[in-house]
Amino acid sequence: MSEQNPGLADPLPSLDPASPIDVADLTALHARLIAGAKTEGLIDIAYRTVDSPVGPLLVAATSTGLVRVAFEIEDFDRVLAALAALVSPRILHTPHRLDIVARALDDYFAGRRTGFDLPLDHALSSGFRERVQRHLVQIPYGQTTTYGQLAADLGSPRAVRAVGTACSTNPLPIIQPCHRVLRGDGALGGYLGGAHVKRSLIALEAGNR
C-alpha cells in the first residue's frame, strides 16, 4: 500500500493539466449526453458493437433502420469515418440501444433465427448495387447460389462482375446474406469479413437447416 509504484497513477491530487478523470464520471456524462441528444433528435447514427462467433460486429442505425453491419477486419474507426462522410457526422456510441439488432444477431448465431425482419436503411447503396443487395434476402437460409445465377435472376445475365462488386460492397452483411453467393466454379469467392467468416456462416446455416 505504502510502496511507491511509478507505473501507477498517483492517487494524490496532481497538478498535471491532463490529470485523469474517473471513468464512472465520464460514463455517466456520456449517458446523459445520449439521453439529451435523443430528446432533441440529434442522433443521426447510433452504433454499438455486438460480440459474435465471427468476432465483434459493429452495428449502426439511423432513424430509418439498420444502415451498416461491419466486421472488425474492416476497422471500426474507418467504418465510422465513412458513415460520417456519407450519411452524417452526428454519430454517437449508444451501448444500450440497438438491443433488438443485437438480440436478432445472437439468435441467428445460435441457430434460432433464419432471417431478419429488421427495418433497413439503404442510404449507403444506390443503382444496380442496391438492386443486387436488396435481392440477397431472396436466397433462402442454408442455400447458396452463384454470382452468375444471381445476375440471371436479376435479368442482367452478363452483369456477373457487377454482381460480384455489389456483394463485396454490401453494407449489411449477414442481414443481406451475400455469404450465400459463391463463384460459378464452386470456389468460395471473396468476402468482406474474410474467407473464413464466409465459410463459417455457410457451415452454421448448413448445420441448422
Partner: peptide, 20 residues
C-alpha cells in the same frame, strides 16, 4: 464541412472539457 464522427470528439476531448 466537418466530417468527423462526433463520438470521436467526445472521447478525445470529453475529459479536457470536464476539467475546464
Amino acid at each position: 464541412r466537418n466530417g468527423q464522427p462526433f463520438e470521436a470528439a467526445v472521447q478525445e476531448h470529453g475529459p479536457r472539457v470536464l476539467r475546464v
